[in-house]
Design a protein around this nucleic acid. Structure first.
Length: 416
RNA sequence: GCAGGGGUGGCAGAGCGGCCAAAUGCACCGGGCUGUAAACCCGGCGGGCGUCACGCCCUUCGGAGGUUCGAAUCCUUCCCCCUGCACCA
């Protein structure tokens, strides 16, 4: 596809948005050799099998992989079904319950479907590390772990930190980097990618490959995308993620909810908008010549289009504008069939609970008191208000939760 | 094994006999403002009830007992977690 690029051009292209590149010289040599021999590079990315829902954070590194593919190289998407049992000690993750073979298969399928929204299936190999790690005998484990020293492993910053703080480190956690490194050996990886938090693990791969007489892999790390909260890295467990399979409206809205500041990072990491152009937009926004909201809307639309379609993006935008800028009603909303007849008097708070818009009467009353509840567009502020049931009406809580209520007569006139 | 430190709301983390449904921060929710589900500001954040801007009740601080008019706070016991020193003489 872009194999006409010179090696230097390729390097520059691949370096874009990369935090660590260890070592650039090695990569250049590998690229040159690949061109000379016609043998594609083997570019590895490891993934945990436990969370198969990809979010935008994952796509940063996937986009980088795609660049390699576009240059004709092979991507090895490694599903860590064995290492998943250990759980990468990065972060606070607790011991994970082992997944069944079936669950893993199912997750892998989900992965494939999602990953191929970005990667080219023709140039992607899917692997499972249980294939070699799962069959290692105890003796082999001992021989393997003998190749790495404790000091090497404890260099890892978070291990040191935990040691300092007196936090626990389980023995098996020390094995994680070794296992991951062994994957690189088995796969004979030329390059391994990961987020910056993976740097250490990726480097162990180099060491171990050397131990096994292989040429060390090139390590490439990309920044971690910050989540919608603008603070922590995007992660499903932090509840700040934007999944790539989320409905268009949801995705659009979530992108609109990131801060103006974070938006620039998203542009950088999730689009191909040239840096110079971004700088121009930013200057214009800061000077007040351009409304940052519009820049953000452009981003939202662009990303929704990438993962859904232009058409879906357009609709999501219209919907967003209608609800939030014009304070209107969504084009579609869930319907709740109220088991009550026209004319009946109902306490609003209870109706909210009954219809699932509030978890408890107390909460419902709070919402009403705070002015968050509208019935057919009219704000009801009396926490003890009653309403007279109409054939159909719209309940709204907050800015974005709508429910169309239908009472008995309208849904089933025969049953009266 | 020994010594020590712990287990409190979604998370982090105060409180250590009554003023504790439990500080504070984060997350979350509602409102205001707006240019957006941005930023910022304000409010809320266990549940039920009432003649409802004030009050009542119920269930919460690892489990179970107990002391006390009264316990997240004290005692007993059990469970769990962590750190250090050992164990291998």
């Amino acid at each position: 596809m872009r194999t006409d690029m010179s090696i230097e051009e390729q390097l520059a292209h691949l370096k874009r948005g990369v935090v660590d590149l260890i070592r650039e010289e090695d990569l250049r040599r590998k690229l040159e050799r690949s061109r000379a021999t016609g043998r594609p590079l083997r570019v590895k990315l490891g993934a945990d099998p436990t969370a198969p829902d990809l979010h935008l954070g994952h796509t940063v590194v996937l986009r980088k992989l795609r660049q390699f593919q576009q240059l004709g190289h092979t991507v090895i998407f490694l599903i860590g079904d064995f290492t998943g049992m250990i759980g990468d000690p990065t972060g606070r993750s607790v011991t994970r319950p082992p997944l069944s073979r079936q669950e893993i298969e199912a997750n892998a399928e989900t992965y494939k479907r999602q990953v191929f929204k970005i990667l080219d299936p023709e140039r992607t190999v899917i692997e499972f590390n249980s294939r070699w790690l799962g069959t290692l005998r105890s003796e082999e484990w001992i021989r393997l772990t003998a190749k790495v020293t404790v000091a090497q492993i404890l260099e890892r910053e978070d291990f040191q930190k935990r040691l300092r703080e007196g936090s626990p480190i389980s023995l098996h956690e020390l094995l994680y980097p070794v296992a991951q490194a062994y994957d690189s050996v088995m796969l004979q990886a030329d390059v391994e990618l990961g987020g910056t938090d993976q740097k250490f693990n990726l480097l162990v791969g180099r060491d171990l490959q050397r131990e096994f007489g292989q040429e060390p892999q090139v390590v490439m790390t990309v920044p971690l995308l910050v989540g919608t909260d603008g603070v922590q890295k995007m992660s499903k467990s932090y509840g700040n993620s934007i999944g790539i399979t989320e409905p268009p409206e949801e995705m659009y809205g979530k992108i609109m909810s990131i801060s103006d500041e974070v938006m620039w990072t998203y542009y950088e990491l999730l689009t191909d908008v040239p840096a110079e152009e971004l700088a121009r937009w930013r200057a214009a926004a800061e000077a007040g010549r351009v409304n940052p909201r519009d820049v953000k809307a452009h981003l939202a639309r662009r990303l929704v289009a990438e993962f859904h379609s232009e058409e879906a993006a357009r609709r999501a935008e219209e919907e967003f504008t209608r609800i939030f800028r014009e304070r209107g009603l969504p084009s579609e909303m869930p319907i709740f069939h109220l088991p009550a007849s026209v004319g009946e008097r109902l306490e609003l708070a209870r109706l909210l609970v009954q219809s699932g818009l509030a978890p408890s009467v107390r909460e419902a009353r709070r919402l009403i008191e705070q002015g968050g509840v509208h019935v057919d567009g009219e704000r009801i502020a009396d926490p003890r208000a009653h309403i007279v049931v109409r054939p159909e009406f719209v309940l709204q809580v907050g800015k974005r939760r709508f429910l169309r209520i239908r009472s008995r007569e309208t849904t089933d006139p025969m049953s009266a």
